[in-house]
Write a protein that binds this DNA or RNA. Structure first.
Lengths: 146, 146
DNA sequence: ACTGTAATTGAAACTCATTCTCATTTAGAA
DNA sequence: TTCTAAATGAGAATGAGTTTCAATTACAGT
């Protein structure tokens, strides 16, 4: 994982008067070790397997911290748990979610972004983030006999 | 509330071999008595107040039934509970949600819809529904000194 | 109208994700 | 090194939603 990124995280901790603990560092590394979506429990279990156990509470607390500081963002994929993705390793994008097999496809569309800005202006609304998710069937699941 | 709509609901129950019970009818009426968003517990409490109590379980079960049959749809408003809105009384639309005061503004934009179709075609994806939500500050909350 | 029966209901127990509590540990400033 | 506020882990608590099961009820067939 990117060394500069880790430094940026340490910086954020420092400038916010938060302690740079082993638990926080290893959760951060775990999250940035891949660019897939994940939920809190996945991180919790991945870390136990790697013998770098932290408590669930700490995973949840650290995720909150990371979201607040823009390192990670919440993604709605229609699941019962909150899903996350790291933000700095990748560009902003939206999601197609297959309701049959769970496959997630990412996409980006500038026209849609522009229209959103237009709409916000019209309503005098100041946007901070957005979330577009399209549910349906992926190519493979369309072929399967239900 | 629209009488034809109620008939349509009764029809749906009938053709699916489900019973037309007082609980189901009053939940249906309650939901269609306004076009606001709501969650399961709101319906539950509104009905107790009106002395038309049904159990929470029945509210949840009936909501599922209504979603499956297209009378109601789930809306993601970033809340911890699932939110709903009735579908037949209003057109499809998206949401602006103020993270400060909770105000919800509805909007509709054909350009965005068209772009979504394009994207789905590109990925061979068959869309069944979508959800666009923009979080931010409404006009009034922008003026307030935090 | 009456009966039989499968669907529906309510109450309470349960699940599951997440949050909270609190006693113990620890990072890092002095 | 010492001190202290911040962070941690373990487990209890919460809250939304689901399940279970015995009792009730809609309604198809008579």
């Amino acid at each position: 994982m990117d060394k500069a990124l880790l430094e940026k995280f340490k910086d954020t901790l420092h400038t916010n008067g938060m302690k740079c603990t082993p638990a926080r560092l290893s959760i951060f590394k775990e999250i940035y070790s891949s660019s897939e979506h994940f939920d809190a429990d996945e991180i919790y279990f991945r870390m136990r397997q790697e013998k770098k156990s932290v408590s669930r509470a700490t995973v949840y607390r650290t995720l909150d911290l990371l979201v607040e500081n823009g390192f990670v963002s919440k993604v709605n994929v229609g699941a019962s748990q909150v899903h996350f993705e790291n933000t700095l390793a990748q560009e902003h994008h939206e999601h197609l979610v297959c309701t049959q097999c769970g496959k997630v496809i990412e996409f980006r569309n500038d026209m849609i972004e522009k229209q959103q800005d237009k709409i916000c202006k019209k309503f005098g609304f100041f946007p901070t983030k957005h979330n577009l998710i399209i549910f349906g069937l992926c190519d493979k699941c369309q072929l399967r006999d239900n």
